[in-house]
């Protein structure tokens, strides 16, 4: 069935739930038609066609017995892009080529939507995903940031450990592959580095790492920015003593999310920060220290917020729908 009206395209994946449904529901209530595209279902369950000739181009998306032409897409919500999921029946030696070609097709397909309003633009998301750039710009707008070292030099890591008086954490600039092995996933969360770990620091020569001073925390904040609106959830650090370092780790008893009001000065800096990246959406992490200082950690331009909507009833989905439907230059 070909949908006849203009649509808002929701770019996501088959594992997405709650947040995507809330935004779709909010868009429907506002009288527009959402169309969900699960990127990992391409090419097996989603069909894309792109026609080009000398006078025009014409593209269609088909999935779940519905089809749209990209001319109908006025607005795009760039929620997530996942790698194509191919079945085991495919000969393994062709798997990589099929994935690569499918991803290239999707990348090309987004170009057919260049006239649409995106939340957010893919190039801006990529630009903002650079964690070192985030720290530089955070510092420029006046945020406090942790002392940070990025190095593949063992001696530098050891000296930094002394500089921060042995209170050091580590992380990577990029995500590990979602699955380093079939049926299991490995993650690297922000981890405490102990002195004995550094006995093996020579192995940094194979891959650099990010080291930061461990910031004492009273609260950990997830701040969600949507087109000038700010939504905040706070976790009390003493509620998840076992983790102390990374509340995002599964199985960490985080306690209840709580409402939190950011100081005006932090909000002003936040808006300047988002303005520098040209982003309409972002999920940011901050630490509030025992002395009440707000320390910027990072921004995820496509970060999570469902727990804040669900537990704190913050109207984030509605704000995203409003941002999607706002006219250009409004």
């Amino acid at each position: 069935m070909h949908l006849s009206r203009d649509v808002v395209l929701l770019i996501t994946h088959s594992g997405d739930f709650f947040t995507i449904d809330r935004v779709a529901e909010s868009l429907s209530k506002k009288g527009v038609q959402p169309f969900r595209l699960d990127t990992d279902k391409f090419p097996l369950e989603v069909q894309l066609t792109a026609h080009f000739d000398k006078s025009k181009s014409y593209h269609t998306i088909e999935c779940n017995n519905h089809s749209i032409s990209t001319e109908q897409v006025q607005v795009v919500w760039m929620r997530r892009i996942w790698e194509p999921k191919l079945s085991q029946e495919l000969a393994p030696k062709f798997r990589e080529a099929c994935i690569r070609e499918s991803q290239a097709t999707l990348d090309g397909f987004w170009d057919s939507l260049k006239e649409a309003r995106w939340v957010d633009n893919l190039e801006r998301i990529d630009y903002a995903s650079n964690k070192l750039r985030q720290l530089r710009i955070a510092s420029e707008v006046g945020f406090v940031i942790p002392q940070t070292l990025v190095t593949n030099k063992a001696q530098a890591a050891r000296e930094f450990f002394q500089q921060v008086k042995g209170k050091m954490v580590s992380k990577l600039l990029t995500a590990l592959s979602r699955s380093m092995e079939a049926n299991s996933s490995f993650f690297l969360y922000t981890s405490i580095v102990k002195e004995e770990d550094l006995q093996d620091a020579e192995s940094l020569r194979y891959c650099p790492m990010v080291f930061q001073e461990q910031i004492p925390k009273q609260q950990e904040l997830r701040v969600v920015y949507v087109n000038g609106n700010v939504f905040v959830g706070a976790l009390n650090a003493d509620m998840y003593v076992a983790a102390k370092v990374d509340w995002r780790k599964p199985g960490v008893e985080v306690g209840a999310w709580q409402h939190h009001q950011l100081p005006d000065e932090v909000i002003r800096r936040l808006k300047a920060f988002m303005g520098k990246f040209g982003l309409l959406f972002g999920a940011l992490d901050f630490i509030v220290t025992p002395s009440g200082e707000y320390v910027f950690l990072e921004i995820n331009p496509v970060g999570e917020w469902g727990m804040l909507e669900k537990d704190l009833h913050l109207p984030i989905a509605s704000a995203i729908a409003d941002a999607l439907l706002q006219r250009k230059n409004e």
């Binding site: 580590s170 990577l172 590990l176 490995f186 993650f187 690297l188 969360y189 981890s191 770990d197 093996d200 620091a201 192995s203 940094l204 194979y206 891959c207 790492m209």
Partner: peptide
């Protein structure tokens, strides 16, 4: 083979 430093925190 050789294990990079980050692997100890996986």
């Amino acid at each position: 083979g050789v294990i990079p430093f980050f692997a100890r925190f996986l």
